[in-house]
Simulated assay, not measured.
Amino acid sequence: MYVVFLRFSAGREQAYRLMQAHKEWLQRGFDEGVFLLAGSIQPQAGGMILAKGVTLAQLEERVKSDPFVVEDVVQADIVAVTPSKADPRLAFMLADVGS
C-alpha cells in the first residue's frame, strides 16, 4: 500500500488550468481500482492519494502521468506503508499487504 503526497510546487498557479485533467487522471485511478482514497492536504498544501494493488514502479509511472506532476504544479512523494492492524471496517486493506 502506498500514500502519495502531492505537494504544491513552483507551478502552483497553473492548478486551476489543469484541474479538470487532474480530476480525470484521478478518476482513472479509481476506475482501475488502484486509488482507494484521495483528498486535500490542509491548509491548501496539495493532495494525498491512498493506492493499493500495484507495484512501486507501476505507481511511479502512473503518478508521472498526472497533469499536475507533468506541469510542475505538484511534487510527488510516494511512501510505502505495510499495514499491520485495522479497524474491522477496513480489514480489506490488510489483504495482500505486499501491494
Rank of each mutant, 00 (worst) to 15 (best):
L37F: 12
L90F: 13
A57T: 11
F8W: 11
A76V: 00
M48I: 12
D66H: 02
L59M: 03
V63I: 08
E60H: 07
M48N: 06
T82L: 12
I78E: 01
E60G: 05
G39I: 09
V63Q: 02
L90H: 14
E71A: 14
I41V: 15
T55P: 01
Y2T: 04
L36N: 06
Q75W: 08
F35T: 02
L6C: 06
E61W: 07
Q27R: 14
M93T: 09
Q42P: 08
L59R: 02
V81I: 12
A80E: 15
V70I: 15
F92S: 14
D96N: 06
Q42R: 09
A51D: 01
A15I: 07
V73W: 00
M1Y: 11
R62L: 11
Y2E: 07
G33N: 04
L94F: 07
P83G: 13
L37H: 09
F8R: 11
F5G: 08
V74M: 04
L37C: 10
A91V: 13
L56K: 10
D72S: 15
G53S: 04
L36D: 04
A21S: 11
A10Y: 10
F30A: 05
Y16L: 13
A76L: 04
F35Y: 14
K52Y: 00
V70C: 08
S84V: 14
P83M: 13
Q20R: 12
F68G: 03
R7E: 15
M93N: 06
P88E: 09
M93G: 03
G46H: 03
E61I: 05
I78R: 01
Y2D: 04
E24C: 06
G53L: 03
Q75H: 07
D77F: 12
F92Y: 14
D77L: 13
A57L: 06
A38Q: 08
P83F: 13
V4S: 05
I78H: 00
R12A: 14
Q75P: 05
V34D: 11
D66R: 02
Q27N: 09
A76W: 00
V63R: 00
L56G: 09
